[in-house]
């Protein structure tokens, strides 16, 4: 499997990171180098092996249905780059 410029553009878009076109080639090269290296995993026989889903050998702990948080709007909004009338504000989204 090999990454080309178009793939770099596609994943950069998925990841919402602007990659100027003149950097796509170089990045494709770097990513291919890493991918080629990790592809040695194909050698490992994993027939019948379950993928590891959690390191800790335990099951999911559950909490009670009690309201314990909230009413901290000032804290929630304190670090916002743009806010108004108790909302976060972002450039207008046209649907």
């Amino acid at each position: 499997m090999s990454i080309d410029k178009a793939t770099v553009a596609k994943i950069a878009h998925l990841a919402r990171i602007k990659v100027p076109e003149d950097e796509q080639e170089r990045l494709a090269g770097e990513l291919n180098q890493i991918l080629h290296w990790v592809e040695q995993l194909a050698e490992v026989d994993t027939e019948g092996v379950e993928p590891m889903t959690s390191v800790a050998a335990q099951t999911l702990r559950q909490r009670e249905d009690v309201v314990t948080e909230g009413d901290i709007r000032d804290q929630v909004l304190a670090n916002a780059p743009d806010r108004a009338a108790g909302f976060f504000a972002v450039p207008k989204v046209v649907e």
Binding site: V76, A84, F88, A89, K92, V93, E95
Partner: peptide
Amino acid sequence: HDQHPSKTYVDL
């Protein structure tokens, strides 16, 4: 989307 001419407001 209708609270401000150039911004979208977000309520979480």
